[in-house]
Design a binder for these strands. Sequence first.
DNA 1: GGCAACCATTGAACTAGTTCACCAAGTGCC
DNA 2: GGCACTTGGTGAACTAGTTCAATGGTTGCC
Lengths: 194, 194
Amino acid sequence: MPYERLKTAILKHVPFSDEEAATFCNAFQPQRYKPKEYLLRAGEICRFEGFVAQGCLRVFALDARGGEHVLYFAPEDWWVTDLDSFTNQQPSWLFVQALEPSTVLQITKADKDRLYAALPATEKLFRIMGQKTLVALQRRMLSALSQTADARYLAFVGKYPALAQRLTQQQVAAYLGITHEFLSKIRRRLGQKK
Amino acid sequence: MPYERLKTAILKHVPFSDEEAATFCNAFQPQRYKPKEYLLRAGEICRFEGFVAQGCLRVFALDARGGEHVLYFAPEDWWVTDLDSFTNQQPSWLFVQALEPSTVLQITKADKDRLYAALPATEKLFRIMGQKTLVALQRRMLSALSQTADARYLAFVGKYPALAQRLTQQQVAAYLGITHEFLSKIRRRLGQKK
DNA sequence: GGCAACCATTGAACTAGTTCACCAAGTGCC
DNA sequence: GGCACTTGGTGAACTAGTTCAATGGTTGCC
């Protein structure tokens, strides 16, 4: 049951009763995606906020020359949306794509607004989750400003070893902000055979 | 009156009555800082969340070799804290320093928690402000991943022209993730005399 | 009013990371 | 079972950005 993961995840932050948790979870619709399938493309309006029950997605942007740059990966238990496009219902500049066969529990903007009204603790839930995301992104920003690609790569595999295994090197490179050729050279230098 | 700026700022996001707004604002204490004065140093626990009523601060980190890297600047109407250290009351890895003579309205963790309890809309207020900060940081992260230093510099002065005037080039460079020497060369190349 | 900091600029030598072209191995598809 | 496609690796030439050292101009301080 994909809803169990969602229930467990939210109860970590907010003390919902069983009924409240059910009200919360029932506002989400499960959707399955095949590898390479897009949930959102730049120019579209993001109609969902999703909780990944299974699989792995990526959120990325294209630069002027067609290069892909990964904002984040979303494996199981992560949330995925274009926050700006979703909250303001305006055109996105991001792509959201499944990397593996994935199941995502999705909520619409209207249903999320209903949740805020029906269960006030929802405010706190998303405030806290947003704060954690912000702290993590601040760390990554500082890492981008201050560390060399070698150090960023080591930090990434150190922090997310299981995820690093699931991703191709191209995806990892697009997250680190380097070319996959250079990542290959870093790995050789570090003697990483894995 | 420094509280007027704070009141105006919060009423943009949340419909407080005059009494509620007063309750909110009175939880904050004004503090004045001289240029170069530190509000927080790495290793300390961040005891405040602040609203800048006047002046300008910077939040930065040191790398292994002593280089400074700016996470963000906080001029008038911006909020400033080490979110991680403040919310979890654990040692910080950041520095917060005044760049100009500044007045900051500050709240402690305990008083902020009291606000959350006394005025539930406070949850919404900080959820929304957090979301906006997150969206802005996502944009900056993608810019760091995908753009050259020239483009990032132009984007910065384009987005924050007044702020760029107030800062030294060293500060701007530490925000862009380049050396101030290289920033100087970029500016020459662009023919910027300002 | 003079000295000490700090700031912006510049040039030369260097290094981290890119680009392009190519090759080998795996994987999935029909 | 074969073919197309994607992936990972490698080398050579290149470029964006760093490092170091030096200079001159402001600014602020006592």
